[in-house]
Nucleic acid binder design. Structure first.
Lengths: 219, 219
DNA sequence: TTTTGTGAACTAGTTCACAGCT
DNA sequence: AGCTGTGAACTAGTTCACAAAA
């Protein structure tokens, strides 16, 4: 059996992919530190996870370990990079050159591991032609089709004012973008085949409010 | 039985609290539109959720509906606000007055519904004394204890460079903050009784990369 | 002996379906 | 008649525990 490809076309849960990202980060550190081998038990110790869960997460995609020994750090790291699709280019546009869009365009972590921010997009004439502090150019939203075609943009980040988010989502999807990270606090609807992830800060804050309200010592 | 308080001290899942925030947003719109009553079925239609799930989410906290009729929009909205703890003041400090911290401090949604950003905190002398575009003052990190005591700060947002995050988390927790929103792409450890939520943009992007890698048309 | 990979058991979360209230 | 509130059924996700491999 091919030991490197996804064996079962089983559905992979979002919890699993999130953990893969966490493993990757840890493996990168381990590799830099010169550690060559790690067991699922030791990996599980770093975060507080069950070791069987780590083995299951990895086993969806192949048999990467050696019984009695553990996993080769460098090799497993490469495999996780491949599984997450980080070995292919990620080209990102940020839609909305307001405060948040500008801050995100310079955020380290967006620009790393084969992930490149190609442009900020806005429709305000005063903004088009300027650039973020880090040098990401602001272009007109009408250039989206060209950027997807010529610059192979495949991810859009929505950081626009509430109200225009659905329209702009439809726009970038129409241009061929199939993965969108949405910072606008609205529930958006994306067509089948387009993945949409919400980063809803208001909901996060409300979650914290909830835990404060329930914790023993009220304020 | 008291119909407004949490009946069973059952553990409430994060999915439930996230959905409560979503219901709240919808109820606010409905109330503004003048709608007086809504059924769980109609509410479920707005997002694509199962109506029984909505009824269960609400039933953890009381019996708010009327059989044969549905829920009174205004009343349910008030109840959800109370459940989420949004009826008490939320006082926020943002730790780190870099690009992201400054953008977040002016982000609408942080400043709303009884949620107020009190200050940005930094240790760079050049930044202390300045303010964000929206007028949030930048203060020295050493003022955290005073702000918690005198301004009743109860939430901290971490937007600092990687490496210093755990130290600063410990610092704000030591000052008495019991709820933290972390934007730093590192796994942090918070003591028992402190709730910590991660907004890890790198993980979000990697999740999108994964879905792109698995979708039929590879780029 | 050590640690993987995995079926079986368990736990959490969601949907079904209906009794009971209005 | 209509819709809530909820036990029962189901589905997804995690942990246990052990045979198989090195």
């Amino acid at each position: 059996m091919d030991r490197t490809s996804a064996r079962k076309s089983r559905h992979i849960s979002e919890s699993t992919t999130t953990r893969l990202s966490i493993y990757l980060r840890c493996l990168t550190t381990l590799d830099q530190t010169g550690v060559e081998t790690i067991s699922s038990k030791d990996l599980a110790g770093q975060f507080h996870l069950n070791s069987a869960l780590i083995r299951k997460d990895l086993a969806y995609f192949g048999e990467f370990g050696v019984r009695g020994v553990g996993y080769n750090v460098r090799e497993l790291r490469q495999q996780v990079i491949r599984i997450l699709g980080l070995d292919r280019d990620l080209r990102v546009v940020i839609v909305g050159a307001g405060n948040l869009g500008l801050a995100l365009s310079d955020y380290r972590g967006f620009n790393s591991e084969g992930c490149r921010i190609v442009a900020l997009l806005d429709n305000a004439p005063a903004k088009v032609g300027t650039a973020s502090r880090g040098g990401i150019p602001v272009r007109h939203i009408d250039e989206i089709e060209r950027l997807v075609r010529d610059e192979r943009v495949n991810i859009a980040v929505l950081a626009v004012p509430a109200g225009s988010a659905q329209t702009l989502l439809d726009r970038v999807v129409g241009a061929g973008v199939r993965a969108v990270l949405n910072f606008v606090p609205e529930r958006l609807r994306a067509p089948e085949g387009v993945s949409l992830k919400d980063v809803d800060l208001k909901i996060q804050i409300e979650g914290l409010a909830f835990s404060l309200a329930r914790s023993p010592e009220g304020s």
